[in-house]
């Protein structure tokens, strides 16, 4: 496609807005809300340009006429990408630092643990975890931590893998002491240092799919997205996460988020909602029905 075509005028036929809203609900389980026209225009216009379409209309036409799954996922990823920044959910990071990591270290002593950032967008959350771990390395002596960030395949996830952030990204939520310790300037951007980047692995997955490709984790952080999911999608995603958390492992939700009436095998840890611990599965011993069970009375002959 020619360069001039890439920069053509962008517009979208009004009839497509509802179709995009339904597609997002179906594929990602997320409600875009009533006023999603602005979101569609701004986010999909950029995607259309980057993918070389003449117009936003042309991209959406192709999406609904050919039904290409790759394009559908790209569109839904762009529409559901979270506007995030470093240490966005302060309460979740406080719980990770003050409760979850010390408890895992206390119980396990050393060894290797695995932490998941579910819906990691452009990577600020898992890199933030790696910074916290670096700052707690004396307290957590002997413990090795693998951090995995997962999200839909998207340009945000590619940025996460690169660990490259803009001037504005690194000045929202990130203390300047962390900036100079964990980043290096590179032209107008800031790039995360190798020792932090190497601790984090990024994987693209469909968040509502079966999560069997992921191994179990000692802690999962899932912040900021739950309220946007439809009720059935919320059940599906929480059930999937429940299967990923090891016994006595933690689920850390965002501030003000909770499992509500459902528990999915978790117990709430604090008096506030948002931090949950996976229950141990108690296996009852099998009883031989032919055996006589003592009734507690002692009989003397």
């Amino acid at each position: 496609m020619s360069a001039s075509a890439r920069h053509g005028a962008l517009s979208l036929a009004p009839t497509y807005y509802d179709a995009l809203r339904r597609l997002t609900l179906e594929l990602a389980g997320i409600n875009l809300g009533a006023n999603h026209a602005f979101l569609v225009e701004t986010r999909l216009a950029r995607l259309a340009r980057e993918e070389g379409y003449e117009s936003l209309d042309a991209m959406v036409n192709e999406l609904f006429q050919t039904g290409g799954s790759r394009l559908a996922i790209q569109v839904v990823s762009a529409l559901t990408e979270r506007d995030t920044h470093f240490f966005k959910d302060k309460t979740a990071f406080k719980r990770l630092r003050e409760i979850v990591l010390p408890d895992l270290h206390h119980k396990r002593g050393g060894g290797r643990i695995r932490i998941l950032s579910f819906g990691c967008a452009s990577g600020q959350e898992p890199y933030g975890m790696a910074m916290v771990l670096d700052q707690m390395r004396d307290e957590l002596a002997g413990m090795k931590v693998d951090i995995v960030g997962v999200d839909y395949p998207s340009q945000a996830l590619e940025r996460a893998r690169e660990g490259r952030y803009t001037h504005f990204d690194v000045q929202r939520g990130l203390p300047v002491r962390d900036l100079v310790q964990y980043f290096e300037p590179d032209n107008a951007d800031w790039v995360i240092k190798d020792n932090i980047r190497e601790q984090v692995e990024f994987r693209d997955i469909h968040l509502l799919s079966k999560l069997d490709s992921l191994e179990d984790f000692h802690a999962v952080m899932f912040c900021g997205s739950l309220p946007h999911y439809s009720a059935p999608a919320r059940v599906r995603v929480l059930r999937g996460l429940s299967g990923l958390v090891k016994e006595n492992g933690y689920l850390i939700l965002g501030e003000g988020e909770s499992l509500s009436q459902m528990n999915f095998g978790f117990n709430r840890v604090t008096t506030e909602s948002g931090l949950y611990k996976k229950r141990e599965v108690i296996i009852e011993p099998e009883v031989d029905p032919t055996l006589k069970i003592p009734n507690g009375r002692t009989t003397f002959g």
Partner: peptide
Amino acid sequence: VSRIVEALAAGADEYIMKPFDSDIIES
């Protein structure tokens, strides 16, 4: 980076790089 470190050592608590917007100052 070296100048930012000097500023912190001299007694600065935080540091904003221009250009800035309201989100950055608030953060």
